[in-house]
Amino acid sequence: MKSKNKKLLCASLLIGCTLLGYLLWLSLRPVEIIAIHQRHNYSDILVKNFPLTERGKINYWLTNKKKIKDIYNTPKPAEDGFFTIIFWDFGDGYKETDGYDRLCFDDMKAVKNCIDKNSLMMVVYSKNTGLYFRMDSGKYYVKENGEIDKRKYE
């Protein structure tokens, strides 16, 4: 093998290992809950380091829902059990309103009480639909036997 080909192979291998290491590091970072804002039975959870895949996001909720309930008293269902939780990317932190497209929280009196709208996952429960997760690619319904059924948007 020529010296040039060996150098190219080594460089490619190094780049591949570095990329793989970075992806592994991203997937192993713990989710950080920054704040929770609640309005009746609706909860907005602001997070950093949320899982990248839809499966990872669902697994995060299924694994941590009891802990979130115990520590943050979230969700706070309505009398009929209905609740909605939206996980938002905290991104660059709280910002001032732009008067247009930021999500602002009335429970904060600070000037910087808004975030850029970047929803990561919605968790919804109602008696009619049961529990489901709303993602970019569709809705994932949890069946009574625990299986998850994906339905794409029409």
Rank of each mutant, 00 (worst) to 15 (best):
N5W: 02
K6G: 00
L9P: 01
C10E: 06
L13C: 12
L14Y: 03
I15M: 08
L20W: 10
Y22I: 13
L24A: 09
W25E: 02
R29T: 15
V31K: 00
E32A: 11
E32M: 09
I33A: 08
I34E: 13
I34R: 12
I36Y: 01
I36W: 02
Q38H: 08
Q38M: 04
D44L: 06
I45R: 07
V47M: 10
P51L: 12
P51T: 13
K57D: 04
I58V: 14
N59L: 15
N59I: 11
N59P: 00
W61L: 07
K65M: 10
K65S: 14
K67W: 09
K67M: 07
I71N: 05
I71H: 04
N73E: 14
T74R: 11
T74E: 08
P75A: 08
E79S: 06
D80A: 13
F83E: 13
T84Q: 10
F87R: 12
F90E: 01
F90V: 03
G91I: 02
D92H: 11
D92F: 09
G93Q: 02
Y94Q: 00
E96P: 00
T97C: 07
D98K: 05
G99H: 14
Y100R: 14
Y100L: 11
D101M: 08
D101K: 09
K109Y: 03
D116F: 07
L120R: 01
V123M: 04
V124N: 11
K127N: 06
N128E: 14
F133V: 04
D136T: 14
G138N: 03
G138R: 05
K139E: 08
Y140C: 02
V142Q: 14
V142I: 11
E144C: 02
N145R: 04
I148P: 03
E154Y: 12
